[in-house]
Design a protein around this nucleic acid. Structure first.
Length: 307
DNA sequence: AGCGGTCAAGTTGAT
DNA sequence: ATCAACTTGACCGCT
C-alpha cells in the first residue's frame, strides 16, 4: 500500500503555522520576546495537532513538519530553550500530544530541514551549525514521533568524491539519536541517487528517492532499478518524493513544481511497494487528495459500460 | 486595513 | 558581481 504525504502547508484548509523574524525579536525586551516566542510555539503545536487530525480524517498517511515549527530555535541571538519559555512545559506537552495522536492514528511525520544544513561542507563552522540544527530537529522529532529528518548532500565544491567522503564522515560522527533519523535525498543539481547510494550503504542512512529530481538530473539508472536500490536502504517504511513540472518536461526548466501531480509522473512500479510518498505540489492538500483518488482508481477495475 | 519589502543560515549557476 | 532558486509564504512596519 502507498500512503501519501502532505508537505508542511495547506492551500484551503484554515490551518496555519506562525513564524517571526530575528530582526523583530531583537527589538523586543527579553521578557516580551520570550512571551512572544512561547505564544508562537504553542500556536504551532496546536496547529500541528489540527494538521494531523485533518490528515487522519482525510486518509492522508503522512505529514511533513516545517523546520520553523519552533521559529528561530537555533538562532545565535534569538535562539532559546523551550523549557525556558513561559509555559514551556505546556508547549512540550502539546507537542507530545501530537506525537501520541500521530502514533495512535498511524500518521507518519517527518522533517525536511532547509538548504543550510550541509554536512559535506569543507567549512567546520558550517558543519557544526548543521549538526546543531539536526539536534534541534531530533528533539522535536522525539516529541512528535517523527522517524525521518531528511537532508540533501549539499555542495560539490568542485570535487564530488571528496565531498561525499566528508559527508559520510560527518554522518558517522553524529549522535546516535540524530543519525537513526537521518536520511539523504537526491537533488536536481548535484547529487544523483547513484552518487548517494554508496554513502547510504556505508553509513546505514536510508535514501529518500525523489523521482522528480532524478528526472531533472538523471544518472543512467532506470526508475525501476533506483526504486529497488533505494527501498533496500530502508530499515523502516521507505519515504519517496513525487512532483510534476510546472511547465511540462519539454520546458527548459522542469524543476519548478506544478499545483498538482500528473498521474503519469507517478512511477507505476511504486505501486508494488509499501511506501510513503510525499506529494510536493503547490496545491498542497488538494493535490494529495486528487492524486489519492487517481491512484485508487488504478486498483479498482474500471467501471464497465452499463454499470 | 492594506500593501510591499524583508526574512539567519549555504551553495550553485544564470545573468 | 549580483541574485534567484531551493520546499514555501508570512510577517512587520509603513501608509
Amino acid at each position: 500500500m502507498i500512503r501519501l504525504g502532505l508537505c508542511c502547508l495547506f492551500r484551503t484548509e484554515p490551518i496555519r503555522f506562525r513564524r517571526t523574524t530575528a530582526t523583530y525579536a531583537a527589538k523586543l525586551p527579553p521578557e516580551r520576546r520570550a512571551e512572544r516566542m512561547a505564544e508562537i510555539c504553542l500556536h504551532n503545536a496546536r496547529s500541528l495537532l489540527a494538521a494531523l487530525t485533518f490528515c487522519y480524517h482525510n486518509g492522508i498517511g503522512a505529514f511533513r513538519i516545517n523546520s520553523q515549527i519552533l521559529p528561530l530555535k537555533t538562532h545565535p541571538e534569538a535562539g532559546y530553550a523551550v523549557e525556558d519559555l513561559p509555559g514551556g512545559k505546556d508547549i512540550i506537552a502539546a507537542f507530545k500530544q501530537c506525537g501520541a495522536y500521530a502514533r495512535r492514528h498511524n500518521v507518519r511525520t517527518s522533517f525536511h530541514p532547509d538548504q543550510f544544513i550541509v554536512l559535506s561542507s569543507p567549512r567546520q563552522d558550517v558543519v557544526t551549525r548543521s549538526v546543531g540544527e539536526l539536534c534541534y530537529h531530533a528533539q522535536v522529532a522525539s516529541w512528535v514521533n517523527a522517524d525521518v529528518i531528511n537532508i540533501h548532500g549539499g555542495g560539490a565544491y568542485g570535487d564530488k568524491t571528496a565531498a561525499l567522503q566528508r559527508l559520510a564522515a560527518a554522518v558517522g560522527r553524529l549522535p546516535t539519536d540524530v543519525r537513526s533519523l537521518l536520511t539523504l535525498e537526491n537533488d536536481d543539481r548535484i547529487y544523483t541517487p547513484r552518487d548517494l547510494l554508496g554513502v547510504c550503504r556505508e553509513t546505514g542512512v536510508p535514501l529518500v528517492y525523489d523521482v522528480h529530481h532524478h528526472r531533472c538530473l538523471p544518472d543512467g539508472i532506470a526508475v525501476e532499478k533506483t526504486t529497488r536500490l533505494a527501498a533496500a536502504t530502508w530499515n523502516r517504511e521507505p519515504l519517496f518524493h513525487v512532483s510534476s513540472p510546472l511547465w511540462g518536461w519539454k520546458n527548459d526548466n522542469p524543476r519548478n513544481h506544478h499545483d498538482f501531480i500528473d498521474p503519469d509522473d507517478f512511477p507505476p512500479c511504486w505501486l508494488d511497494y509499501d511506501l510513503t510518498v510525499d506529494v510536493e505540489a503547490k496545491a498542497k492538500e488538494l493535490a494529495v487528495l486528487r492524486l489519492k483518488k487517481q491512484l485508487e482508481s488504478c486498483f479498482r477495475p474500471a467501471p464497465q459500460a452499463g454499470e
